[in-house]
Design a protein around this nucleic acid. Structure first.
Lengths: 165, 165
DNA sequence: TTTGCTGCAGCAACTAGTTGCATAGGTTAG
DNA sequence: CTAACCTATGCAACTAGTTGCTGCAGCAAA
């Protein structure tokens, strides 16, 4: 979430989530609030496990169980606050999907780095394709894999020793 | 794999796989051959489980164990014979990636149908984006989700009863 | 306050998929 | 033919993620 500009956000994520839950006659419980707060305390990509660790037992105090973390992640997706962007290292990777412009990712197979790029072109192509098929598109997930510039540069420069071992 | 035309295939999949394995000093064992044959006996999308079922124990004779099926699927991906296209019903969905033109999928969230569409436009947009970032792209995976024409049509026609229950 | 309803958390058992390990089996050298 | 060497297999144990169940908390009516 680094190279793209932040958009205006008028309602705090927690409140947006509460609103969403209300429409489904559900409550913003302390456990759910803990998950949202944790996730929105940083602006990076994240996977479920780090929150399971810090919220449920292993590393922190018990704020929400494993099941609750996962269930809340699903709710947050439904609410449009986060979205799954890729699967890396056997984990689903999520990112905030509220207050940020649309983009997709180049994923480096070597270092695992995810490079964001804006996707208006792609979205508009998809709109056309979908229309042709009478398909009501609600979203997409695009993972472009390959080797990033850093990793494909042959290791030949000076101060290379710092990068190795 | 239905609506797009078949391309010319000069070498049989099994032979292509054997070639690939040779370059890695690996053998085309009976187990591996059984998996490839099974997969190429039909031209549909498929998931690992159906082969685990039919090859390893549960439904058929024991031709290859669970581990071997999964390991062979990875090898087949490396060899460029199959590719993962989506994740549906908690399963990875694969398709043949040899002898077929490039395409992506519209995935219906209701009926699970996968509609293929050719993707030259998207590929070329991605080429440009990748070049801008000095990224050496090796492939991509695009899942477009939404509701297909069939499912979004309101249920109001005649002979509707046939479709229900 | 009591009774009843409903949503929800946590547990434990489950599924898909992966991996470490011991061993079977094939290939080459002597 | 045998020994040494590897690769590949199957098993069992593991991981990430999901789900059914039970019992509890919060609210509403009486």
């Amino acid at each position: 979430m680094s190279q793209l500009a932040t958009m205006n956000v008028t309602v705090a994520p927690v409140d947006k989530f509460r609103e969403f839950l209300l429409t489904k006659k559900m409550r913003l419980t302390p456990e759910r609030e803990a998950v949202v707060t944790a996730i929105y305390s940083s602006h990076d990509h994240f996977d479920a496990d780090q929150w399971v660790d810090s919220l449920a037992g292993r590393k922190g105090s018990m704020l929400a169980s494993r099941s609750t973390v996962y269930r809340t992640l699903h709710l947050l997706q439904e609410a449009g606050l986060i979205r799954k962007v890729a699967r890396a290292n056997d984990r689903e990777v999520y990112e905030h999907d509220y207050g940020y412009p649309q983009h997709d990712h180049l994923i480096c197979k070597k270092c695992g780095d995810m490079i964001e790029f804006p996707n208006e072109m792609i979205s508009s192509v998809l709109e056309t394709v979908a229309a042709e098929h009478g398909f009501r598109m609600s979203g997409h997930r695009l993972e472009v894999e390959g080797i990033c510039a850093k990793c494909s540069r042959p290791p030949q420069r000076t101060h290379r020793k710092l990068d190795m071992i």
